[in-house]
Design a protein around this nucleic acid. Structure first.
Lengths: 184, 184
DNA sequence: AGTCACATCTTGTCGCTGCCAAGATATGCT
DNA sequence: AGCATATCTTGGCAGCGACAAGATGTGACT
């Protein structure tokens, strides 16, 4: 599979546009995203993206699907340890900022799209996986929601630059400390 | 003070534009906000907003300042009870969705503006106020961060429509249950 | 009362954007 | 070889943010 750009046909434009979107969002945030800019980055005409994604919301929908699948994969890696699953959640937000910002901005894409719903459900199952391994006498639904809230809140605040400077220096270590608060 | 719209001069255009912004964001989210639409809602020409706010980021900066001040006020109301302060945080997000969404989307406004920084600090102080009243032997910085994370995460997930339907029905009650998890 | 500086709002314009329609080119199937 | 289809281009339209220049009120000073 050649990914070179020469010729009338790009070869892998869909993937190239998604990659360009990640790059552009990393530079200027999701709100400033422009389909025409992505087309320029990929070296194609301004209307080429429409063929693959329909419109801007379509492109962001595809990016959200990709993001939820990456998240599910990242959350499955630590196994049963709920603390480490939480840390993985924060690390995912830091490592895939562009995806994360889009995923939780449902006004930007078609959040009710079936592919999104399926990918979101896979990520949710991966997160709930660690809660099942908690000691007896716990309340799974509430514990899952509390765990999700605390890691999501931490990640969001860190991305927003709202954390005090010393807490934001090493988000992963700080997150580990904060999450541990749930188990004491 | 007359707030009528007749005449060449509006009378209270700045306030009217901020109110229109809250309304518009409530309908379509912050990303879809248009200065020209706000001008139409206020019954003025398309360039009138520029005089009061400079540009779009300026308007959203003013909205963020207003939001952080409203939040500080809301957090001060419950007094020393950290649980109720957390509930007030969630209630604020629900009651002032437009403000909240802008406040924590620093890419949309000038987050380093001194007025924003001051208002944000006031809200932070109000939040930390409840942590000081915790039982001895606690770790204030970490506890404040954990509390902030869990309420912010819950509020954000609720606004994003990411919570399971039964948890999202009565966010305030669910939030109270989830936050209590921090104190057990 | 006059007039003058200033704040407020309007009109006009520019480049950029998303989206649509119509046409060009490559690919693969028969 | 020939045709259907997927992929990409060109051209155009309306809406947007930002800027510049002008019109209109407001208030202060004399």
């Amino acid at each position: 599979m050649t990914t070179t750009t020469r010729g009338y046909h790009h070869g892998d434009l869909r993937r190239a546009l998604l990659a360009a979107a990640v790059e552009a969002i990393g530079e200027s945030g999701p709100a400033a995203l422009s389909l025409r800019d992505l087309a320029r980055r990929a070296g194609v005409s301004h209307a080429a993206p429409a063929h693959h994604f329909g419109d801007k919301a379509g492109l962001l929908t595809a990016l959200a699907v990709e993001g939820f699948d990456l998240l599910a994969e990242a959350l499955r890696r630590p196994g049963d340890d709920l603390l480490e699953i939480g840390v993985a959640y924060v690390r995912f937000a830091a490592d895939h900022r562009a995806h994360f910002e889009v995923m939780f901005a449902p006004g930007l894409y078609r959040a009710d799209d079936p592919e999104v719903a399926a990918a979101r459900a896979r990520a949710g199952a991966a997160l709930r996986g660690g809660v099942a391994a908690l000691p007896a006498g716990s309340t799974p639904d509430r514990d899952a929601l509390a765990a999700w809230s605390i890691v999501h809140g931490f990640a969001t605040l860190w991305l927003a630059g709202a954390l005090p400077p010393d807490a934001g220096r090493d988000p992963e270590a700080t997150a580990r400390t904060v999450i541990r608060r749930l188990f004491e």
